[in-house]
């Protein structure tokens, strides 16, 4: 069949094995743009919209498993937003209501745009991806899954089933710069995740490199300059953190912005994201 609309993951994997040429279609918000413009001419399609098991989430101990078919609108549900607030913040900045109703976590991962809004958050959370094909299942760290602009480790016949992230890291924030609020692709974005229990800061950036990037030197530098008992950083730490994060960005000039502006934006976003996540830690410690 040229167009299949499977109802289960097993059916979807079988359909994909049967037609390795098939284009995989989740929410369509990236793929159909290419098809409409004639850049892609599919000979077969496996559409995932009816695979309900991909559109579920669950908590197992301190891990949250997000099905690849969850839409941005799904991520805004209060119970999910409470566990991964930065992911809800990222979802909230995507497109408009109809785009958030359609676009999915798995689609964002598979498209692997350097500007994908959920990607910096998932990267800062050290997400692991569950992948499946008729050959079997495997788990890949997002960090190694993203190999370049719109390039991933996903193999022919393989689907993203879920992303797994910590469920118990409430101090996190996503910030993004674009030309307006709605319908905007990130010019620069930053996600900061703070784990006050072990004294770790994770920071990832979007739209400033071939893939979303972590800022390991800034992360290591800042972790030793925060009083983890109170969540209060040493004087000037947030500003210096922003500068260090910007140093680890690798922006380019393109039709959306300049490298210089992006580097500046990342510095400001990282500083503010650190300040507000640490303020959250301070409030929690005071409570």
């Amino acid at each position: 069949m040229d167009v299949s609309v499977p109802r289960t993951l097993d059916e979807a994997l079988a359909a994909l094995a049967d037609r390795p040429d098939a284009m995989v279609l989740a929410g369509g918000t990236d793929v159909m743009v290419g098809v409409n413009a004639g850049r892609q001419t599919p000979t077969a399609v496996v559409a995932l919209r009816a695979v309900e098991e991909l559109r579920t989430w669950s908590v197992d101990g301190d891990r949250l498993r997000l099905g690849a078919g969850l839409t941005y609108a799904d991520l805004l549900a209060p119970d999910l937003a409470a566990m991964v607030p930065a992911l809800a913040q990222a979802a909230r900045t995507v497109g408009s209501p109809p785009i958030r109703n359609a676009g999915t976590v798995g689609g964002n991962l598979a498209t692997a745009s350097p500007a994908g809004d959920t990607l910096p958050v998932l990267l800062a959370l050290d997400a692991e991806l569950d992948l499946a094909s008729v050959e079997g299942r495997r788990t890949v760290a997002l960090r190694s899954f993203l190999t370049g602009p719109k390039r991933t480790q996903l193999r022919t016949g393989e689907l993203i089933v879920a992303a797994r992230v910590p469920a118990t890291r409430p101090h996190q924030e996503y910030r993004k710069v674009g030309v307006r609020n709605a319908m905007v692709i990130a010019v620069a974005s930053v996600a900061v995740v703070v784990d006050a229990d072990v004294g770790v800061v994770a920071c990832a950036m979007g739209s400033v490199g071939p893939t979303p990037l972590r800022a390991p030197r800034a992360e290591e530098w800042v972790a030793g300059r925060i009083d983890w008992g109170t969540g209060v950083p040493d004087a000037g730490v947030a500003a210096e953190f922003g500068r260090l994060v910007a140093e680890e960005s690798r922006p380019i000039d393109d039709h959306r912005s300049t490298a210089a502006y992006r580097r500046h934006a990342v510095e400001v976003l990282a500083r503010r994201a650190l300040e507000s996540t640490l303020a959250g830690v301070a409030r929690a410690e005071a409570a």
Binding site: L25, V33, V35, A37, A47, N101
Partner: peptide
């Protein structure tokens, strides 16, 4: 725009507001 930016093609698919340009028609069976 046929890329989901303008909203002029909005329809309801199973009650959900959707850009018709971003739906593959053959996948909307049912």
């Amino acid at each position: 725009c046929e890329q989901g930016e303008c909203g002029s093609c909005s329809v309801l698919v199973d009650g959900v507001l959707t850009c018709a340009c971003l739906v593959l028609a053959a996948s909307a069976v049912g």
